[in-house]
């Protein structure tokens, strides 16, 4: 009897503690989300106004003409995430396995160092590096490796490069945390049982550090799908992504319903991808 009362009291005080967060999320996340959802079904009026009746027009356009861009956003994000993983895992593994604590701290510091400079400035810098007469082409031509400049800027390649560059730390840090927690006695055990290094890594180390891989992948994939600065500055006409279309609808075009429909669609893409990923992860971790 007393015990139940105590639990109820505990629950109530827990709710009280969470109240600020609940109000915050309700007011600034759920409510706007609801508005975006409703807007996406409303009719567009001139001058940035919306009105009844409800219509599916904006979703028809989203999955019609704009599907090219949806598809491009997804594949660019997937490729960027995979590259981040392929670079980020070995890097995180390298850092986490340094014996010297000072070296480890220095490495981590260097991973987050780029954040000290504004993202926009760093992306503009890529424009100068990647241009036809940019630094990279100048070096390659100077070394006599190529005759004509390579087309690097204003391509999907440039967008992927920019995204990987920008979001790599989000992959490295969670994986580092996972590897850091990993007890290397398991590897010794695997060796004792006859596994070589490669086998020990894929059968023991990788499965046990998967939580970091999943967290890192999600942290990279989500901002990639919504990116708009990177494709805007580096992608040209070939690298247009859904984020660019959304920003255009809320800015220049003043087509709030279409912008809302595109936003909702983007959220659905992210949600479906994450759910699939989590299920995959649970199966791997569970098995």
């Amino acid at each position: 009897m007393l015990e139940a009362q105590a639990r109820r009291r505990q629950q109530r005080s827990g709710l009280l503690l969470a109240l600020p967060a609940i109000i915050w999320l309700g007011l600034f996340f759920l409510l706007p989300l609801g508005i975006v959802g409703v807007f996406s079904f409303l009719t567009r009026e001139a001058a940035g106004i919306v009105s009844l009746p409800f219509t599916l027009e904006h979703y028809e356009r989203t999955f019609g003409v704009f599907s090219v861009v949806l598809w491009r956003s997804v594949w660019i994000s997937v490729v960027s995430t995979v590259i981040c993983l392929l670079i980020g895992y070995p890097l995180a593994f390298f850092i986490a396995t340094r014996q010297n604590n000072w070296v480890r701290q220095l490495c981590l510091f260097m991973v987050v160092l780029p954040f000290w400079t504004n993202f926009l400035v760093r992306t503009y810098a890529w424009r100068i590096l990647l241009g036809d007469q940019g630094t990279i082409n100048a070096i390659l031509q100077g070394l006599g490796l190529i005759d004509a400049p390579l087309t690097l800027l204003n391509t999907p390649f440039a967008v992927i490069l920019g995204l990987v560059y920008g979001f790599l730390p989000f992959m490295v840090l969670p994986i580092y945390a996972s590897v850091d927690r990993f007890d290397f006695k398991y590897v010794d055990a695997a060796h004792d049982l006859g596994a070589n290094d490669i086998k020990a890594f894929f059968r023991v180390v990788l499965p046990m550090t998967l939580p970091g891989v999943f967290a890192g992948s999600a942290l990279v994939f989500i901002p990639c799908v919504g990116a708009f600065v990177t494709p805007d500055l580096l992608g040209g006409t070939q690298g247009l992504m859904i984020g660019n279309l959304i920003s255009r609808q809320f800015g220049q075009s003043l087509n709030l319903p279409l912008g809302s429909a595109l936003s909702v669609t983007m959220m659905l893409i992210v949600m479906v991808a994450l759910l699939a990923y989590v299920r995959l992860g649970n199966r791997r971790l569970g098995g």
């Binding site: 704009f66 090219v68 861009v69 006409t237 075009s253």
Partner: peptide, 21 residues
Amino acid sequence: GSEVEVIYSNAWDELLIFLGR
């Protein structure tokens, strides 16, 4: 007129997507 501006801006959105291929 704003009504026609809407037609232009929709056309421009579509143009942006298919330009350059």
